[in-house]
Design a binder for these strands. Structure first.
Lengths: 338, 338
DNA sequence: TGATTTTGTACAAACGTTGATGCAAATATA
DNA sequence: TATATTTGCATCAACGTTTGTACAAAATCA
């Protein structure tokens, strides 16, 4: 900025009052410090006229409070996570906070670097969908006192709060839906293998299969990306025996899968049925709307924010871990077979 | 944070050197101030051991530099803008800066509020896709010396730098494509009417139509949203004469349009052809991949950042306004008719 | 050997806030 | 009327940096 900024000193001068008084009025502590009505009025007017904009850096330096929350998601271009970012971003502002958004690009090192940067900005809290199964850096920060809430992905054996969905339940529901529609030759394309949601989804898948007496099934893949979905599907299609249904463990995997199927002229659901974890807007616009296990993004975001701010205000330490019920949204990608 | 943070004073103590010296070494000004090699070494080691993380608030307060860039887009859940946010976000970090992302929600007031918040954080620069045709707040900030670069949407008659695509050219290309495929009954669904890109696209559309000797055409709509696309298409379908082709001026409008067509069992392109401005990943996965005028998001982002940082470092004031060439991506949504 | 230059570092004053403390003036109480 | 209380505000010292300046000690020179 070229023009010098207006400081509370300028306001004080104009109003004929001290810096301290200005600070108190502008911070809503007028009552607490018994500042007279007239003085309050004068200060507010002066601030208005001078178009005062507080300098957060100065106030943070003094107070140690940055009024900043960090959000880290694995990929902003994934509409599922963009949804989280957007929701949380606007929710945070309602508390007078601001958020800085980081994109870890599904890369642990990037995640750490982002986090470092953010910590040096004195973030007061962090909402993160961790990209991998590494958690040391998070654990350390959490133990140092940084409030953290994990969303979507989390770590079962740590006491870092999280808000996610019941991944096991969702996977069971999805698998049962396929089985009820007559499928038994099912392949599951998974994401990052050691991540908690993935483990639980796989467990749900396996349990549902075995409960139905189906002993043989395939689990392939290793990443929550379009490429992984595409590649694994391409490989699948080269096998002698093509499954009648595919269960993809994320919307990105689903997109890759669909692309591969389309390239090979395999129709959904006539030739292969598809069901996926995660919903998003664009899933409805596809050639065949894809049946999915939808996570309540908005609810998760709001609860996560609530956890974070209750921790920030009450300094309440009780670890909160919540799993919401996912919902199956039946669209048109699963065919009933004999 | 509960544990007290490490300050340069702690490092100084450990290294047996003064705060000043520590600051200079850590800021790479050791040579300039002739700090001895040994001292540099000691300081770096101490910083390492103590896991020093600089306090940006203090340094910014003193230096006035926040190393923060603001990004404001109309909607983070629109993959087109999420793409910008993601690109710019990571690009900015390469300069040692951080970015804060705002979502104006296509609302002028929200945009102003976001901006206010950001300015109070001493942002050093702003990259914005303004939501409307109001620009006073931007103009003012720009004149006060805040470096601003507009992307996608901009203001023709202001000297605020911008990076966008040649909207006129893109619209002409799209319209010609329809005409060459035999269409003459074409409706255009537009976005925010007074916005520069919209005006230019409409101009391109009209010019192309009239150049082809087509006198009668429709322009409807007033918002870059899915709802607008949906509603206007619904209305269109109630008319006696349904157009043979629809030209939507954004990907969101296109999605709404497609939804409405689908609901009414109107096939693309057999019954109605569709072409749209803006590309994105998911457009390829639709039932009928939609032919579109693609904007080079990555290039735009990179150039915008380049403009911003050249301004920041050289304090170079030359206004830079660039229009990149959009590219038509022919997919399957336009049918050749007699 | 004394004067001059170079080298290496420290001191102290900001930056714009906040918060503890202090102290008159105004008001209430005895 | 003298004392106690309340009201309304100002003074001052931080917060963790950066930066202009000052100043010994070491090295060089005459």
């Amino acid at each position: 900025m070229v023009t010098r900024k207006v400081s509370i000193a300028d306001i004080g001068e104009r109003a004929g009052l001290s810096i301290t008084t200005v600070s108190r009025v502008l911070n809503g502590k007028a009552e607490q410090y018994r500042i007279g009505k007239k003085s309050q009025q004068k200060i507010k007017e002066a601030a208005e006229e001078l178009e005062y904009i507080p300098n957060y850096f100065a106030s943070n330096l003094k107070s140690g409070k940055s009024r900043t929350i960090a959000i880290i998601v694995p990929s902003l271009t994934n509409p599922f996570f963009a949804g989280f970012a957007s929701e949380i971003n606007s929710e945070v502002r309602r508390f007078g906070y601001i958020s800085i958004i980081g994109d870890s690009d599904e890369n642990n090192e990037t995640e750490k670097l982002e986090l470092q940067q953010m910590v040096s900005r004195n973030i007061e809290g962090l909402i993160i969908a961790p990209c991998g199964n590494q958690f040391e850096h998070l654990k350390k920060l959490y133990e140092q006192g940084l409030p953290i809430v994990c969303i979507d992905r989390y770590f079962e054996h740590l006491d870092i709060p999280y808000v996610s969905t019941d991944n096991y339940d969702g996977a069971v529901t999805a698998t049962k839906h396929l089985i009820e529609n007559g499928h038994s030759l099912i392949t599951c394309i998974q994401g990052i293998q050691q991540s908690t949601p993935n483990l639980l989804r796989i467990k749900g898948f396996k349990d549902a299969m075995e409960d139905a007496g189906i002993k043989s099934y395939n689990v392939v893949g290793d990443d929550f990306t379009i490429q992984n979905g595409y590649l694994e599907t391409k490989l699948l299609l080269q096998q002698k025996e093509i499954p009648t249904a595919i269960f993809t463990l994320s919307n990105t995997i689903a997109m890759g899968c669909i692309k591969a199927l389309k390239e090979n002229n395999i129709r959904i659901p006539q030739d292969v049925s598809v069901i996926t974890y995660d919903d998003h807007q664009y899933l409805d616009f596809l050639e065949t709307p894809i049946t999915c296990i939808a996570q309540p993004v908005s609810d998760i975001s709001k609860i996560a924010i609530k956890f974070l701010f209750s921790r920030l205000s009450n300094d309440e330490n009780r670890t909160k871990q919540v799993l919401l019920k996912p919902e199956i949204k039946i669209k048109k990608s699963v065919r009933k077979i004999n």
